[in-house]
Simulated scan of single mutants.
Amino acid sequence: MTIVPTLPGPAGTQLRDEHPDDARSRTKPQVLARITGWAMHSPAGDTPPAAAQSVLAGASCASAVDPATAGPYARACRVPDFDRVRSLGRKGTRTMDRATALAVATVAGLGPDVVGHGRPDAVGTGLVLGTAMGSVQSTMDFTRDALTGDRPYLVDPARFPNTVMNFAAGQCAIWHGLRGPNATVIAGRVTGVAAVRYAIRLLTLGHARRVITGAVEELSPQRGWLESHLPGGPERLLGEGCGVLLLEPAETGTAGPVGDVVAVETGLAASPEATRRVLGRVAAAALDALPPGAVLDVHAPYDDRPGSVEADALTAALGGRPRPRVLPTTTTLGDSGAASAVLQTQVALGALHLRSTGRDGYALVTSLDTEGVVGALLLRHQWQDAPR
């Protein structure tokens, strides 16, 4: 019996009691949800295959930036040429922060078959959006104005909603006519994994017929100053971006054209020394869902350096399985904060779409945060849906 520290719910497991023969007896993976759509804004492009190509090529999206972009950081990975007015128009965007604008524009990328006012399925379409803490820039700017103004109450009231952590999710629902469940998830760099798990719970319990899930992070001088004061912060390459996935119930009976979520596992390490062990257990629990004879094609970690916690956890979880190709997503896209895990997920799915092996492809996404939260996703892309 192996105890896997993770949050309760139908999308994960708290207590495992499985004989080794039980895992070998499975002929195909249990699918938790179908991924039927995707959209992204990233420093490496606006489609997961394009971002995956950059990561596979070992490219870097870092460029010189001024202090108004990332504070003390002279270089960062910025979503190129993104402007909220140019992307969304002037109406309703005067006080919109960059994170919210990225989220609204990215959800729009799912297309009119998914989002838009007047759609009959709007009530059944939910949204789970992850963020660090809302817009750090909006919160700090509003607080500064209250402290430095002639009167504490002489602030711009139109900017106050931006300081609420669920502002981006609410704006996405308002802009795109989404009337289903609306939630904001915060779990550090593991936010993308937590958001997927929350979305699967909504589907499993029948609260929504489909769920848009993802996460967003912005570059700002305020975030830059905060990051620079964290351990290892001055050496970190910051990035930004937003990615969303459209999840539908596994009971649809057909493979998702983008892919399938096969396993979602999360855990909590009580101390930094326990992180490697807990993440190894979480990754092993996710890999238990691999069917006999299946090969793990790619691994998308947050920290892709050899000898890192994630590299060691993968080694322990793989056992005697062949090692997958590592996708250096953070090296290419930068540290995307709350959006890291979802961008890793989309790069992993994009890499599976670029394969030409003639068989189903599997990807493992792992993530960990400085607060001890860890997570893993196992994804599948069925070969018959791959472009030929």
Rank of each mutant, 00 (worst) to 15 (best):
T345S: 10
G350I: 09
A339M: 07
G358F: 05
L327V: 04
A338P: 05
V347A: 02
Q346Y: 08
A341I: 04
R323H: 15
V347M: 00
L327E: 05
S336Y: 12
T345L: 03
A341Q: 10
T332G: 11
Q344T: 11
Y362N: 03
A339G: 04
T357M: 11
A338I: 04
L327Q: 01
G361H: 10
P328L: 12
R355F: 09
V326S: 12
L343W: 03
P324G: 07
V326M: 10
S356Y: 13
P328S: 14
A339Q: 05
L354W: 02
T332I: 12
G337A: 08
L349M: 12
D360N: 13
T332M: 14
G350D: 03
R355C: 02
G334K: 02
V342R: 05
T331Q: 14
V342Q: 05
L352K: 06
P322M: 02
L349R: 08
G361R: 03
S336T: 15
T330W: 02
R355G: 00
H353F: 01
V342P: 07
L354C: 06
A351N: 04
H353S: 13
G337N: 08
S356W: 12
A348R: 03
L349C: 00
G358R: 02
P322F: 06
A338T: 03
A351D: 08
S340V: 11
P322H: 08
L343P: 09
A341K: 07
D335R: 13
P322G: 04
Y362C: 08
L354I: 09
R321W: 05
T332P: 12
Q344D: 14
T357S: 14
A348C: 07
Q344H: 14
S336M: 14
D335Q: 15
A339R: 02
L349G: 02
G358I: 09
G334P: 04
D360L: 07
A351Q: 03
P324V: 06
L333R: 00
R325F: 12
H353T: 13
A339F: 03
P322W: 08
T357P: 10
V326Q: 11
L343E: 01
G350Y: 00
L349N: 07
P324Q: 08
D360R: 10
T345K: 05
L354T: 09
L327T: 06
D360V: 01
L352E: 07
L352S: 01
G361Y: 09
Y362M: 09
Q344L: 12
Q344M: 13
V347P: 03
T345D: 00
H353L: 10
S340E: 13
H353M: 07
G358S: 05
T331K: 13
L333M: 03
R355L: 10
T332A: 15
T329V: 15
G361E: 00
L327W: 06
P324W: 10
R321F: 04
P324I: 04
A351E: 02
T330G: 03
